[in-house]
Nucleic acid binder design. Structure first.
Length: 852
RNA sequence: GCGGACGUGGCGGAAUGGUAGACGCAGGGGACUUAAAAUCCCUUUGGGUAUCCCAGUGCGGGUUCGAGUCCCGCCGUCCGCACCA
């Protein structure tokens, strides 16, 4: 077998060393790809296009292992598509605005911009070190005016089309830090940083009219057949469409009480009304009755966590007011109830205890009537309730003119009556609220408006964009640095020229990530994008990211795309044709209780043995906890840089793809990464045996090779990387065992190309040794369909469904022959034990089942 | 409570209704070596009266010649949402 002489540079042959040295090879090939500009997407290309995108990272400073998994998957797909002759757009950028930069500024006295840009440089180097096939010429950082200036222009466009407005809205205000907090920054009612009690404050805030798109966004979900069902369901629930009847009760005190119900069909079963504690009716009653005021105060004390809500008892206060039933004329008592929410519907309900569990619980507690108005049939009308409400479908009973109607029919009938009578109307209610985008923060996109005492709120003229952030800001005192900047906000009104002041709110960073995938397709200096290029590249063919963005980011991006389409900027309606949400990387947690609290240790501080583990530092045991998502606070993290330094980029990439299905969690293990590194060397040894001049045919190996090529291609297209990996192991084993031949050399060459997208550095190094060009520019190996089918098959022989023997026969052996062969089997005869065969089932090329 | 996903060896997991446990990790045994590393080979679901047989894919039923896979009912784990009227 001819020994091939590998290369230091593409094309140059040198001697293949004993071991593959990732430390040198990784950098060499990364430089070679850069130099050849392999991964630049060509807008002018006539090839079929693929847009592969992973969710861009927040530049925290370090890549974590979750990024490595995410970007490796996208990279394999991008490299594979390129080998299949596609023009691939695979870009990368930075979601670079946000709070951590300001926190760093406050804690370390560094400027958010400097801190962010330094982090970007570090992380970019880390990504390069992993060998990702990215088009860096299209890199975006959202914190640069070249990006956010265009965002301001788009914001003004939406404003011009009435999709942006201002309104008073309650925010979480931290009185110590003098800042607005996001909901997740409020912990047990206190600011996460200051610990101060958070107040609800009314501030004038900017909103985007996402509710205008509620129906579109909901309907659009049905077109996203390449999205996970799970994500579609989550968005559907989030949008929360419900259809029902809104009508008003006449109250005994002369007022009216508007209520909303999705079950107008049960209106004859209403036995009381209930209002929220902060409902105007409740407030009015409380003003005159201290007992009511006390009850309202009690309601507000109640916790709001899921567990508390689940166990919370239904409590009510009888206001003494009654409501007149629109059909029966009955007087229904009006309660203040702790389970009614002011934020939903009208803050008041008609309660139908028989067919709503909450109402049932409440009625049981306060001895209110529980009426049956829906039953399985008319004969069932008097059946008592078995301790719980019946919310299901059925026929209306005890319901006057509705009797005998099905639920759906009755809903329509009641709405029709209400609309005819003018006392109510059919109404669709959405859970989705308009998107509040104001943040009282420095490190974000300035909202391009000016407040003028004469002209009111005036948009910044587009020719004055971008409105850039001032660099000289002070983080020593709490509050919004833009607001207290000495000069920045003072400008003249663009309309009347009088002194005015800039808007000092900045945009929610979710706005930045709502259109970055459009900017990747084209980056004109004078416009956010070129619509023609968007038409070329969008929608993204494969979007990959974490499930944590199932709702907010993915919904906002869908909204923003549809909004731009509605105002005529682009044509595409849905930005992401196919979505994949990858699982997390997990590791067990090591801890020890010290002084009443858990102290955590990282995997590198631990020696693992059998069931237990000890701390390297003192040799004493530590507690081995659950396998959970890697997180800094639990210290169960590994540093990708260290892994790359020890094992090379290809080993960590291979690990990310192996074993676990990509949508599931991947448990990190030291043994696993070592196994991957061993496999890299094992392939290297096999590649070294490549001999282009070998002769002789090995038909079985040829088949295996071609079957593997076809299967791996299918697996990659379906993102089934773990299966592709398993097949590659199989072909590796078969090739190693085979005797030298042309077939064996072909198998080795095919293997090299198959691992090209997964272990690109190893592939390049070996390919150069073969005297060929760059794998990055090579074609995926062809498949000979004739070799995909075996000419010999193994047939299972069952007796009464139990396996008794196997037969190796030529493919396509006729049914009768198979029967005869099966009956001739000694094992089969023994299993039959003389019993007569009643029936024979033959599945050609698969099995024979003898039924005795 | 509602919705969704999942449940297969010691572990991660394969398996168009047709030979369960491919492939990897870990374990056991062996070869090579003065020794180690590296590498290679064998072995590993459980139980038996062991060239063979029985049981076995969370539990209980069912459909089928045949079920990890389909249907019904449970149990458990994880995720999301939630007094949404």
């Amino acid at each position: 077998m001819g020994r091939v002489r590998p290369a230091t540079r593409a094309g140059d042959k040198t001697v293949m060393t004993e071991r593959f040295d990732p430390a040198q090879a990784d950098l060499r090939w990364q430089a070679a790809w850069d130099q050849a500009q392999c991964f630049r997407a060509d807008d002018a290309s006539t090839k079929p296009r693929s847009y592969v995108l992973e969710m861009f990272p927040y530049p925290s400073g370090r890549i974590h292992i979750g990024h490595v998994r995410n970007y490796t998957m996208g990279d394999v797909l991008a490299r594979y598509k390129r080998m299949r002759g596609h023009e691939v757009l695979h870009p990368m950028g930075w979601d670079a605005f946000g709070m951590p930069a300001e926190n760093a500024a406050m804690e370390k006295g560094v400027h958010p911009g400097g801190w962010t840009r330094e982090n970007i440089a570090n992380m970019k180097a880390q990504l390069k070190r992993l060998g990702f096939a990215l088009d860096w010429s299209r890199e975006i950082a959202t914190c640069e005016p070249e990006y956010y200036g265009h965002e301001q222009a788009l914001f003004l466009d939406l404003y011009a089309h009435d999709l942006v407005y201002r309104k008073e809205s309650a925010v979480n205000w931290d009185p110590v830090d003098m800042t607005v907090l996001a909901n997740e920054q409020v912990i047990d009612g206190r600011g996460w940083r200051s610990g101060a009690l958070v107040e609800k404050r009314k501030l004038s805030q900017w909103f985007l009219k996402i509710t205008d798109f509620a129906d579109e966004l909901l309907e659009g979900l049905s077109t996203l057949d390449k999205w996970p069902e799970k994500v579609r369901v989550m968005q559907e629930n989030w949008i929360g469409k419900s259809q029902g009847l809104q009508f008003a009760f006449d109250l005994s005190n002369g007022d009216t009480l508007p209520v909303y119900t999705t079950r107008p069909d049960t209106i004859f079963g209403a036995s009381f009304c209930a209002v929220a504690a902060d409902h105007p009716v409740a407030q009015a009653v409380a003003a005159a009755d201290p007992a009511a005021a006390e009850f309202i105060a009690l309601c507000k004390q109640g916790g709001t966590t899921a567990a508390e809500l689940e166990t919370a008892e239904k409590l009510g206060f009888d206001t003494g007011i009654t409501a007149r039933h629109p059909f029966t004329g009955a007087d229904l008592p009006v309660y203040i109830a702790n389970f009614v929410l002011m934020e939903y519907g009208t803050g008041a309900i008609m309660a139908v205890p028989g067919h709503d569990q909450r109402d049932f619980d409440f009625a049981t507690k306060y001895g209110l009537p529980i009426l049956r108005v829906v039953a399985a049939s008319a004969d069932d009308a008097a059946r008592p309730f078995a301790g719980e409400a019946e919310a299901g479908d059925g026929i209306c009973v005890n319901s006057g003119f509705l009797d005998g109607m099905a639920v759906a029919e009755a809903k329509a009938a009641v709405i029709a009556r209400a609309e005819q009578g003018g006392w109510g109307e059919g109404k669709t209610v959405w859970r989705l609220r308009d998107w509040g985008v104001s943040r009282q923060r420095y490190w974000g996109t300035p909202i391009p408006f000016i407040h003028c005492e004469i002209c009111g709120v005036v948009p910044v003229p587009k020719k004055h964009l971008p409105v850039t952030l001032p660099d000289d800001v002070d983080f020593a005192t709490p509050g919004n640095p833009l607001d207290r900047h000495p000069t920045w906000k003072h400008v003249d009104c663009p309309q009347c020229g009088h002194p005015a002041r800039r808007e000092t709110d900045t945009l929610d960073t979710f706005v930045d990530s709502s259109w970055y995938f459009l900017r990747f397709a084209s980056q004109p200096a004078d416009a956010p994008f070129d619509p023609a290029k968007i038409a070329q590249w969008l929608p993204v063919d494969q979007y990959i990211g974490g499930i944590e963005h199932a709702i907010l980011h993915l919904l906002y991006a869908r909204f923003w795309t549809r909004a731009l389409a509605r105002i005529g900027k682009i044509e595409v309606q849905e930005p992401f044709a196919s979505l994949f949400t990858q699982g997390m990387v997990t590791h067990e947690v090591y801890s020890r209780e010290e002084g009443g609290r858990d102290v955590f240790f990282g995997p590198s501080e631990i020696v693992r043995s059998g069931d237990g583990a000890t701390l390297k530092a003192d040799g004493q045991p530590v507690t081995v906890g659950k396998v959970i998502k890697m997180s800094k606070s639990k210290k169960n993290v590994v540093d990708p840089d260290e892994i790359v330094a020890t094992y090379g980029a290809d080993a960590i990439r291979w690990f990310m793809l192996s074993d676990s299905p990509p949508e599931r969690d991947l448990p990190w293990s030291e043994a696993g990464i070592e196994g991957c590194a061993r496999f890299v060397q094992r392939l290297w040894r096999l590649f070294a045996q490549y001999d282009a001049s070998a002769t002789g045919e090995d038909k079985a190996l040829d088949r295996k090779t071609h079957q593997t090529i076809a299967a791996v291609a299918q697996d990659i297209e379906a993102l089934g990387f773990n299966k592709a990996v398993a097949r590659i192991y199989e072909l590796t084993g078969a090739t190693e065992k085979a005797a030298p031949s042309a077939s064996r050399s072909a198998a080795i060459r095919a293997l090299l190309l198959l691992i090209g997208p997964m272990m690109p550095h190893l592939a390049e190094e070996a390919f150069a040794g073969f005297g060929e060009g760059l794998v990055a520019e090579a074609a995926w190996p062809d498949v000979d369909p004739a070799l995909l089918v075996d000419d010999e098959v193994t047939i299972a022989v069952q007796v009464k469904g139990k396996l008794r023997d196997t037969l190796t026969v030529a493919k396509g052996t006729p049914k009768d022959d198979l029967e005869a062969l099966a009956l001739a089997s000694e094992k089969v005869q023994r299993a039959l034990d003389g019993a007569p065969v009643r029936k024979i089932i033959v599945v050609p090329d698969r099995l024979v089942n003898l039924v005795a």
